[in-house]
Design a protein around this nucleic acid. Structure first.
Lengths: 251, 251
DNA sequence: TTCTATATCAACATAAATCAACAAAAAAGT
DNA sequence: ACTTTTTTGTTGATTTATGTTGATATAGAA
């Protein structure tokens, strides 16, 4: 097992097919080395090899979805580690769909004995297979975008639960208008999750601390919420964030 | 437990892989010390060690789940291709959880415009993100085993749908007793799927065409069902299979 | 088909990482 | 202060990974 395997897997599943030389340039090693690393991966069935390139045997998710996952990846992982540090064994948590949430779910796999409710099949599937966890999938009809549900049954299932934590995300944060999302259903979902949880964690990477237009405003954070982010917010945000405690990790 | 463990864990999960020397420089200790600290972490499964680096163990799915996926992988892929060949654009299909089904789902990603209903978050997530598909996740409470639902709402959601195809699996097939599964809920699920579908496809790899004990019998296949498998069944199975058309691909 | 450009493979040399054993230093107990 | 225990650093032999070279194989074009 080589340290480059993960990178190769990522590149291949992201792009469908990659040439040996491209990978060599990407990882700063020789072509021969790539071939040597890829051989056992082919034997194992991880990827497939054709003359001139290695191709993916299976796509775990849509390329656009993976692209979103990879944008600001470092920041998202850092935030995920902050959040995972706040959650303790035995806790219950409601998780909204989203790429940052997906990283949090990944980090939470190291925990045990969690009760999780989410509207994302991706997150549900990630956490359901950790033994000791109790995972509930909210909703039935899934949208293509990210495999998450926003139908009536999703809201009904969520309303029937109560959790210690809610993990919320926003697509941007405005100094005066507060947390913003792009779709009405996202706003409704955040409101529903806030309602059933004792404590709220906003996971927002620093690149989103900028104003955008035409977005839907979310309910204001209640006192004692936590903002998990990767860089100290600008002073302009002081007022809107005065009710939250802010957890930051420097990169 | 060393005081450096947390730092190492963070660095590894943040960066995916870190070299021993980098960690040594970071923590101001010798390479050898890093190796000594990391060894018990590897034994515990916290991180993984490869020549040249320490890599994160975080994978997208559980090791036991992946192990089941990899058993008889070739046969399952062959079966998945048979099944994918039967499904046409615009078709609707109900899919039961299972490792063979997971491969079928993977193969079905090449299709478009499918209506899918499944009780597996893994399969739902795989097919939901294909644009043009309409995917419904049946159920809410997920079992750890495979992230699939067998609760009341799963059966209710399924009963509310109607599909052209049902993809069924069994854990073994007996020449006289027919298709068998290990759990009552699996049998109920198969019965529910058979009920809502016009045509049934049994996906069973040839290694399961052997008798086992203490298993639950499924409803007999209705006439016109298809058995998708990877090797011609022994003559002993002729009688039980007389009502099905058999699709086989040789390996 | 034959030719050409490119990819692959095998073998060796080199560089790097690992391990075991011992020495030095620090921490803990008497 | 002394011994014992634990941790850390150093050394050199061993193992493993990587890059280079040259021979072979493959895909596509003429």
């Amino acid at each position: 097992m080589s340290k480059y395997e993960q990178d190769i897997r990522n590149a291949v599943s992201l792009r469908g097919s990659v040439s040996v030389s491209e990978l060599a340039a990407l990882l700063n090693v020789s072509d021969q080395t790539i071939r040597r690393i890829v051989k056992p991966m082919v034997d194992r069935g991880d990827v497939e090899k054709v003359h001139g390139a290695i191709v993916s045997t299976q796509t775990l998710a849509d390329p656009p979805f993976l692209a979103r996952m990879n944008r600001n990846k470092q920041a998202k992982i850092a935030i995920a580690n902050i959040v995972a540090g706040m959650i303790k064994p035995g806790d219950s948590i409601a998780i909204n769909t989203g790429s940052t949430s997906a990283f949090v779910a990944q980090a939470l796999r190291q925990h045990h004995d969690l009760t999780v409710i989410t509207n994302s099949t991706f997150i549900a599937s990630t956490l359901a297979m950790v033994s000791g966890n109790r995972v509930y999938m909210a909703g039935s009809q899934l949208r293509n975008h990210d495999g998450a549900a926003f139908d009536r049954s999703a809201f009904e299932t969520i309303a029937a639960h109560h959790t210690k934590w809610a993990l919320l995300s926003a697509s941007s944060v405005h100094p005066e208008r507060g947390f913003l999302v792009q779709e009405q259903c996202e706003a409704d979902m955040c409101a529903a999750l806030m309602k059933i949880a004792d404590r709220h964690i906003w996971a927002v990477d620093a690149s989103k601390l900028t104003d955008k237009h035409l977005q839907i405003r979310l309910p204001a954070p209640i006192a004692g919420s936590t903002l998990a982010t990767d860089a100290q917010p600008a002073p302009a945000y002081d007022r809107i964030l005065s009710r939250t405690s802010i957890a930051v990790t420097a990169l």
